[in-house]
Write a protein that binds this DNA or RNA. Sequence first.
RNA 1: AGAGGAGUGGCAGAGUGGUCGAUCGCGGCGGUCUUGAAAACCGUUGUACCGUGAGGUACCGGGGGUUCGAAUCCCUCCUCCUCUGCCA
Length: 423
Amino acid sequence: MLLVQHIRDHYDQVLLGLKKRNQVHADDTLQQVLALDELRKFSQTQRDQLQAEANTISKEIGILMKEGKTVEATAVRDRSALLKTQIKELEEQHDQAEEELKALLYTLPNVPHEAVPPGKSAEDNVILFTYGEIPNLEESKLPHWELIKKYDIIDFDLGIKIAGAGFPVYKGKGAWLQRALINYFLDQALAAGYLEIQPPILVNEDSGYGTGQLPDKEGQMYYVSEDKLFLIPTAEVPITNLYRDVLVNVSDLPIKNVGYTPCFRREAGSWGAHVRGLNRLHQFDKVEIVQITHPDNSYETLEQMSAYVQGLLQKLELPYRVLRLCGGDMGFTSAMTYDMEVYSAAQERWLEVSSVSNFETYQANRLKLRFKGEDKKSQLAHTLNGSALALPRIVASILENNQEFDRIRMPKVLHSYLGFDHI
RNA sequence: AGAGGAGUGGCAGAGUGGUCGAUCGCGGCGGUCUUGAAAACCGUUGUACCGUGAGGUACCGGGGGUUCGAAUCCCUCCUCCUCUGCCA
């Protein structure tokens, strides 16, 4: 959620940023925000004044009653009753303005960093860097949805039987590979100084608001109505929300957390021919890194996190490229996002396997995540997160890129986790 | 799931209708003393919003109500504890 003060102080910059996100009505919305905030402040000032008077009167009545001057007390009491109705009116005005203001702010996405390119869709993302050799496979190469059948390691039909489409069943070496990747990713993050967190994979409504899934995106999450809980779409939600309503000490920053969780996405309406096999699932595994930093360091941290994720891809011997997302393709809450895409050699296309973002104060403002600085004043921290990594497309690329005639090579770094070197 | 009890400042714990944002203690911070530290003593110590400022307002688990006035009374929701039941 954007800060009203920031909108007021940097109006043109905010407007420009929102335009970069193709928010056509941004000017109107921002003007409304400022008007509502004025109304909010005005009604509070008025209300506070009347309330101060009412408080004084109440104390006077108390003293009069104690002295037994009941006649005088009754006279003052009438004045107080009048104040009360006025206060109530102003309070309603104030609360309504505040509520409308909040609702409006919820509709505004984060302001992109100035380095974020303009653009409407994925076409306009900027390729920053490409790494690795694209493998030269035989003509008989198979896409991963054929390979998993050939080696009987992942079974979609069984998943359909017990749950539905998009819920694969991992078997034998397929299951083992999942476990190995999770452990490898967690160990790497631990070595990089992250603290491992094992959070709940169901969260309440407040948590959904904290990281920006709510309002508006409830359709993307599975919902347990009996208990009013959401299945998490990413570990970002529970882990970042650990710090909701928290005032940390500046010396505790940066906070670095990593967590493995299954992730659940309804993906309503986003199915098509190009999302076969492991490319898009309702349930998948992901290791997520989250950092909370001082505002001065967050972009440096973003680069570090991006480098960290790239390091993982290099160790897995996968060709990849790094994109800087354009304004139109960036997530609602992000100020800058890098996407890492791995080349899947049989599908002959790039697959997104990680997304690393800096949210600046956008999430922190909703979360009320602040730190107390040297000057004893509290200010909002910056939050960042990234996939490190999401498993299904990594698995797809490993299977496709490393296929040979009658086996699939496993990356060297996984051998000790797997206990075998090929499938 | 049923019955009972309880939620107060970083922690511990008073306060049951009237200068209570809240006693006392511990912890934290500053100081005196000391070569330094400990001890002792003195002082200080929540958050948010409004206001140029002086200052004001709100917050005692959340929300609502009664009252001139609520931490205190009523309703409701949430959480925790104890007992019973169920259970990996």
